[in-house]
Simulated assay, not measured.
Amino acid sequence: MSQTAAHRHSHHDHGHDAGAFVDAVASACELRGLRLTPLRLRVLELIAAESKPVKAYDLLDRLKDEHSGAAPPTVYRALDFLLENRFIHKLESINAFVGCHHPNEVHQVPFLICDVCANAVEVCDERVSKLLNEQARERGFRPRAQTLEMHGVCANCREAADRKSPAS
């Protein structure tokens, strides 16, 4: 297998299907006996509707438009539930939340975060987390959580910048 074919084979990108994601989480809650309250569901729907990571205060603003009584503690409790059950990921470096592409699996994935457009791509390649876990074990370290975030500029933003400033 050529290097390019191996690269294509080792990862895959995900389309953005908010409805399917929300349905998958609802099914997972039912299977696991978890309570997906109306507020938890609404926060999940708001995160799913975004094509980019969303900050808690943006979620709160949207909820206040719908429910004047929405307060930070209620949003954070809903986010805590969704995080604890691994339905969403928190990107610590930008303090924002994204839906998980595999809400029925326990997994650890790295994210590629564009510093220009703020898009975040979940890299679904288990070799990365396997390598990090092996390195931790070799050092006697017992990991509790793993979120690897790589910052840079995505292909779309690089292409846009190249179009604006032609090579001299």
Rank of each mutant, 00 (worst) to 15 (best):
S165Y: 12
L39D: 02
D125G: 01
A118P: 00
L63N: 01
N133S: 08
F87H: 03
L112Y: 09
K130C: 03
N133I: 04
K164A: 15
K64N: 04
L63E: 01
R142L: 11
L131I: 07
R127A: 13
D162M: 07
G99N: 06
T4K: 13
P73V: 08
G152N: 10
P110Y: 02
Q3D: 15
L39G: 02
R8Q: 14
D58G: 06
C114S: 11
V22Q: 01
K130Q: 11
V153Y: 06
V109R: 13
L91H: 07
H102S: 12
K130G: 02
F141C: 01
T147P: 00
R142Y: 01
V128S: 00
E134T: 13
F81V: 06
D17I: 14
V109D: 05
E66K: 10
R42S: 03
R163P: 00
F81S: 02
S10K: 12
Y57D: 10
P73K: 14
R142G: 00
R86V: 10
L60P: 01
D65L: 15
S27V: 14
N133G: 05
P38W: 10
N156S: 12
A145E: 12
G33N: 05
E30N: 05
D23Y: 07
P72S: 12
C117Q: 08
T4G: 00
P166V: 10
E45G: 02
A118I: 03
L39E: 06
V43K: 01
R62P: 00
R62I: 03
V121L: 11
L131C: 03
L59D: 00
S2G: 15
H107G: 07
T37G: 05
L112K: 10
E84N: 12
C29L: 02
E126Q: 05
M1L: 15
A161C: 06
L83C: 09
G99M: 10
G69Y: 15
R163W: 03
Y57A: 09
C154S: 08
E134W: 05
F141N: 00
S27M: 09
L131Y: 08
P73A: 09
A18T: 08
H7F: 15
S2I: 13
P143N: 02
S2V: 09
A20I: 05
H102Y: 14
L34P: 00
A5P: 00
T4W: 11
L60S: 02
M150L: 13
F21A: 02
M1N: 09
S129I: 08
A160H: 12
A78H: 04
H11I: 09
Q146N: 11
P73G: 04
N133C: 09
G19P: 00
G152M: 11
E134G: 04
R35K: 15
V116T: 15
N156G: 03
H67V: 13
A155H: 11
R8T: 10
G69H: 14
P110T: 03
E66Y: 11
G69K: 14
K164Q: 13
K130D: 09
